Amino acid sequence: MYYINKVSLYNHNNMEIAKTIIEQIRYADKWALMAYGSSNFIALPESKEYQGGLQFQVNGFQLKGTVRIQLKWIDTYSITFINKTEEVIKEVEDVYCDELISILDYIEGK
């Protein structure tokens, strides 16, 4: 089980979205989060563009930094890869849940 930190603008829906993202990743590949060296999970708040999301730290071969997965109102994800100097390295829009692992494998250089 992964522990998700609560954000200051926490509400029940934010936590459910973050948990669902983790479940979708684990369903596709139960070892992926461990392989990415994932830690410090944070539920992201709702905004004008997003219903909520999940942010976590990774320690992969290709990326050592932060991954932000945000659920758009049209039910697709936006995935942002951020390095340790907080520079956006890669952004992928309109990702469906069954594509999460193939996009997240960028962390491992696949």
Rank of each mutant, 00 (worst) to 15 (best):
G65V: 01
K48D: 13
T76C: 06
N59E: 09
E108D: 10
K84D: 12
S47T: 15
I42G: 01
V7C: 11
L44P: 00
I22S: 07
Y3I: 05
I22F: 09
I82A: 14
V67A: 02
E16W: 03
V88R: 06
Q70F: 07
C97Y: 13
M1K: 03
N14W: 01
S47A: 05
Q62S: 11
K19L: 04
Q62K: 14
S39Y: 13
V88H: 05
F41N: 01
K19C: 06
G53T: 06
C97W: 09
G109R: 07
A35G: 08
K30G: 00
I82E: 12
G52L: 11
T85E: 10
W73I: 04
Y36L: 10
T20R: 10
Q24I: 08
I21F: 14
F61C: 10
N59I: 00
F61T: 11
P45S: 08
N14T: 05
N14M: 06
E99T: 10
E93T: 05
S38C: 13
M1P: 06
V92W: 04
F61V: 13
E49C: 02
V88W: 00
Y27G: 00
N40G: 10
D75W: 05
L63E: 04
N14P: 00
Y10I: 12
S38V: 06
L33N: 00
E91M: 14
L71W: 10
Y36E: 10
G109H: 02
N13S: 11
N11Q: 11
I22K: 09
N11E: 13
E93S: 15
D98H: 14
S78R: 09
Y36M: 15
G65R: 05
W31T: 07
Q24P: 10
G37V: 03
I25G: 01
F41A: 06
Y27I: 02
V95A: 05
G60L: 02
K72F: 04
